[in-house]
Nucleic acid binder design. Structure first.
Ligand code: FES
Ligand code: FES
Lengths: 164, 164
DNA sequence: CTTAATCCTACCAATGCGGTAGGAGAAACC
DNA sequence: GGTTTCTCCTACCGCATTGGTAGGATTAAG
């Protein structure tokens, strides 16, 4: 259960844009150098964000990208959805009907698989966690920088140990 | 963000075991045929469950597997952890210190990456959803599905969720 | 007209995943 | 004892995806 680096890099890109308070567009090159990420790969990632109208672009010299909306109104579920294409805990969840209903591919004679119940809960937990996190929050967090991640950070986190 | 089929098959295997109320061990072959899953693959999966003491085995003819604990006490976070090895929304989360603290691999001069805050929340949401779901719950759910199915075949259809 | 930037698309190596194959022990039955 | 039926173990393999690169076309500032 691991998001791809598209989500990681994309979110980081947005945070980087959010840190620039002014309206001047920021070039990808600057972001790539700032975050130590491959420029060519970032180009493909930012295209996803633009397609979702989360980012505006200005072409040509002195061009770049800027946020299309107020950082406080940008929730992470939109962002991750735009970057990853779907927020699904199991592969059968990627194909959804128009209403967002999951169509269970493991159906035998009208009997839904027992796991559907579980994955729906997990999906709900993820999207809820994503939805209640705004871009502005992440920007503020990154501004705090070397302040130790105190109870505020770890409060809602319940880390698990890997036994293996 | 997708779990592998190890989680899917493993949970389904446990549910199948949970449906057997008696103490007689169930062979993997029976489960594989019942669920339409490859037997050889299930063997490797059930090994993970046994290593986590979620399942007991009896070798030899008429042998098989049975639940090692009461289904009500088995929470899905243990199960998924045993099957997947870790519950991590990002690859940097798989390596943890002894205390379960995440060691951030993208650290620039003491500054943690802005995304850590987000992924910690997501991880928390997932583990919370997993922890509050017990195996007994899933067994009950799958039993309800059967009732719905048999009722459907008898002509008195009771719609659990109407199809779109 | 040069330069700096966004765009677009094809390509590529590596990794992991889902699955297979072939056995070696262990217990029940005849 | 031999056969059958299981659990166990480990190596192998095709395939899809991921993360990343290459190369160029387009647009606009200076
Ligand atoms: S096939 Fe995954 S929910 Fe039914
Ligand atoms: S590198 Fe992922 S949390 Fe910092």
């Amino acid at each position: 259960m691991i998001f791809t680096t598209k989500a990681e890099y994309g979110v980081r890109l947005l945070v980087e844009l959010g840190r620039q308070a002014n309206d001047a567009p920021v070039s990808l090159k600057a972001i790539a150098e700032n975050e130590g990420l491959p420029l060519a790969y970032l180009e493909r990632i930012v295209a996803l964000l633009k397609r979702a109208d989360l980012v505006e672009s200005t072409r040509g010299a002195h061009g770049g990208y800027r946020l299309a909306r107020d950082p406080e109104s940008v929730t992470m579920d939109e962002v991750v959805l735009a970057l990853e294409g779907s927020v699904a805990p199991m592969s059968c969840f990627v194909d959804e009907t128009d209403d967002g209903r999951v169509l269970c591919s493991h159906v035998d004679d009208g009997e839904a698989c027992a796991t559907k119940f579980l994955w729906l809960r997990v999906q709900g937990g993820v999207t809820e966690a994503l939805r209640r996190t705004t871009l502005a929050e992440l920007v503020a967090f990154s501004a705090k920088q070397d302040v130790a991640q105190s109870a505020e950070t770890l409060g809602s986190a319940l880390p698990l140990h890997s036994a293996a």
